[in-house]
Design a protein around this nucleic acid. Structure first.
Length: 156
DNA sequence: GCCAACGTTGGC
DNA sequence: GCCAACGTTGGC
């Protein structure tokens, strides 16, 4: 299977690209996804070795700030089993996990953050899932050419 | 902080 | 199975 590409959204106040850099081994669980469409991608499609665009949402302006690499295929998100966790799900069990996560490793910061308004105007990004009206998916597929375009815009 | 868009829940 | 009410996301 050829390497694929994804865009992962995070609110930097909660978990930023620099926070990923500061993790032991520069690696983190991508946990807390509680949307079925995104869950399906994490469980079935996102694979070790895939490329990740790390996107900061809920800031002004939102922007892709760096790259990461998937280092572990989808597996059950343990936060769903922890009654004390924010992401606890009483309907999930170890036998029937409902939510999945992957592990990602810090890659490279973009030399220039690629901001949402820039992406909206960039040739070649017209079809990006991110730019579709009402698009809220926190895990999104990115094409190889979109990946290249954004890295180029980011000075890599 | 506001609010439009979207997703989920639950009564019927 | 419909759909109103509610909760969340995320750009602005």
């Amino acid at each position: 299977m050829a390497r694929r590409y994804w865009l992962l959204k995070s609110e930097p106040d909660l978990f930023s690209f620099d926070d990923l850099k500061a993790e032991p081994g520069r690696t983190a669980h991508w946990d807390g996804v509680r949307n079925y469409q995104a869950r399906n991608l994490l469980r079935d499609e996102v694979k070790k070795g895939d490329g990740v665009l790390f996107y900061h949402s809920r800031i002004s302006p939102p922007a892709v700030v760096g790259t990461a690499t998937v280092v572990r295929d989808g597996y059950p998100d343990h936060t769903q089993f922890d009654p004390g966790a924010k992401y606890f799900d009483e309907k999930a069990s170890a036998e029937k996990p409902r939510w999945y996560m992957v592990d990602i490793k810090y890659g490279k910061p973009l030399k220039v953050a690629v901001e949402l308004p820039t992406m909206r105007e960039a040739p070649g990004l017209e079809e990006m899932v991110l730019l579709r009206k009402g698009s809220r998916l926190s895990v999104q597929p990115v094409t190889a050419s979109e990946w290249e375009t954004i890295l180029h815009l980011g000075g890599l």
